[in-house]
Design a protein around this nucleic acid. Structure first.
Lengths: 143, 143
DNA sequence: GCCGTTTAGTTAGCCAACTAAGTAAATTTT
DNA sequence: AAAATTTACTTAGTTGGCTAACTAAACGGC
């Protein structure tokens, strides 16, 4: 039989796992008023404050419009602030507010909890294996 | 240093891979006028036509509201049709139209192409390994 | 029969992601 | 210097996903 059974494909498994992973993250992040994805923006700002939106676009691997909307909400929530660049007036730089900075530790803990709830069941060796395989797949998909 | 570096977490790798996988699927599906996710609904109907929406909710692991909206669009696109169940008037059954049925083969080919573009780089043994590990993670996340 | 509960879907509204089209500023070309 | 192009970001509109609140029908106990 040549019928393609979707549920047997690795891509289907991947999507299932990713959905469950996102739900777990979403559920924990909602406790501090965030949505999955927003914490990644904050992460890059903790690592380097005052990034340009273009830089966030590159780091997050999403479209400019996605960053614009996401920042609109983070700004409304009082977690970041946009200021025009002094030298290039096209450029908008993004800065953390105190409220945004203060979430650092809580979000770090949430990540660790999600990581444990997902991959904690794997042995150290299995974790290294899945990391290697995921990277191989990502490289294949991105080229 | 105890700082949690997001990008080193397996969850981050997983999300990256899943995003790239979805983009690949979306790009191929758009050629036949579909969006990623809609083809999964069609898949379950090919497997068994006339399912109830509740059944689709269970199979797809999404919320009832998500199915409602998705079916609204598939119905507008002329790919499925809803008819009330004769015995239980709360129940809405979903049937493929000829147009919906006709996409079967094309979508099967797209799946195989996405699968190859993602996991084709892995050896058969590696594919079995990642399947086993993903299932382990999924089980962990779902309990 | 009647009232309360459960079940099946819908509606409204929110967020992340996308595309496409548009504005504005800087840069490059002529 | 003026025109064309590129770069940075926004706006409008789409989809997949979610929650919360809602309607309607079936089921259960009394």
């Amino acid at each position: 039989m040549t019928e393609t059974t979707l549920t047997e494909l690795l891509g289907y498994q991947l999507v299932q796992v990713c959905k469950a992973h996102r739900n777990k993250a979403e559920s924990l992040l909602s406790e501090i008023g965030l949505h999955a994805g927003q914490e990644v923006v904050l992460h890059y700002l903790w690592h380097e404050d005052g990034r340009t939106q273009s830089n966030l676009v590159d780091e997050l691997c999403v479209q400019p419009a996605t960053v614009t909307k996401s920042l609109d909400r983070l700004e409304s929530a009082g977690l970041v602030r946009r200021r025009a660049d002094a030298e290039d007036r096209r450029v908008s730089r993004v800065y953390l507010t105190d409220a945004g900075r203060s979430l650092h530790r809580q979000i770090g803990n949430i990540w660790l909890e999600v990581e444990a709830a997902s991959f904690g069941v794997l042995t150290a060796e299995e974790q290294e294996t899945i990391r290697r395989l995921l990277q191989k797949v990502l490289k294949n998909l991105k080229q």
